[in-house]
Structures are given as structure tokens and as C-alpha cells.
Amino acid sequence: MSFVFYVLAALTLAGALAAMLLKNTVHCALALTVAFAGLALLFLNLDAQFAGFAQILVYIGAVAILVVFAILLTRGSETPRDGVYSRNWFAGLVIAAGVFAALSWAVLQSVRVLSNETAEPTVTAMQIGNALVGRYVLPVEIVALLLTAATIGAVIVAMHEKEDPK
């Protein structure tokens, strides 16, 4: 694996760690953006141009902005007095370490049987467009419906209801 891959992986993991460890929530959101950018660059490094640019547009352009808005609307940037970690943080850490141990054990056990084609795939945006309106047309329609429903649902859920007079 190339040097570039390791640099991008380190950038992504550092951003993710910072997002989960920093005390100030706004700083966490900024570190999250770094992690998303690192992931988009990893996708580009893996010759998945379309997915990489979709990642930049959706995650950095929309999700990160949404997170910042939610933090500012809930005044979450104030660091709570009694720490940022929950009471049973140790159990969570143990569970996460166990999951990582299981995953990495599975990957290292199956290194030999994993396929490893090194030929660089050539994928054009035209091929992806044809696949989206051809073979994957039903999933695209379902995702369109789901996004519409989710957008309307999010607006209705977050809508400010008038206080009923008492």
C-alpha cells in the first residue's frame, strides 16, 4: 500500500479520535469535518471518484453544517461541569475494544483468502449514470422517496409548536 494511503488513513483516524475526545462540542464538529475529508480523499485514492465527490458534497457540505447548526441551537458548546463522558464510560470503552479486537482478528485471519485484484478499474461518470437509470432505477426511486419523507419528517419533528394556553 502506498505512502499516500497511510497519510490519509492517519489523517482520518486523527480527525475521528479528536471528534470523540475533545471537550468543546464545536471543536468536535470541526474534527469530524477533517475525518470526513480524509475519508473522501481515501475514496479518491481507491479510484472511486464519484463516491469521493459524493462524500464531500453530502458529508462536508450538508451533514457537518447540520451538526454545527444543531450544536449552536442546543447550546451544546458549553462544556458541562460534570465531565463530557457518561457514567459507564469504561464499559463502552471495553465493548469498543472488544469489537475492534474481533474485527481485526477476522481481517488478519482471512488475509490469504481475500481477493486482491490490482488492475485499476476505469469507471466513468457515464457508466454510473447508466447504471443509476438502468439496473438501479428502483433503488434510486426508493431513496428519493426516503429522502423526501426524511426531510419532511425532520422539519415536522423539529418544528416549534405553539404553547397551548393554560
Binding site: 451544546g76 457518561s86 463502552g92 470503552l93
Partner: peptide, 18 residues
């Protein structure tokens, strides 16, 4: 590793946004 970091954060942070 990224999945485990996310899982650890989801299980240990207090703030719902995090």
C-alpha cells in the same frame, strides 16, 4: 479502527449530538 472509534464515542459521550 474507525468503526471502533465511532462506537467508543457513541457509547461513552454524554452529549446526544456527539
Amino acid at each position: 479502527l474507525l468503526f471502533s472509534i465511532g462506537l467508543a464515542g457513541a457509547l461513552t459521550r454524554r452529549n446526544a449530538i456527539l
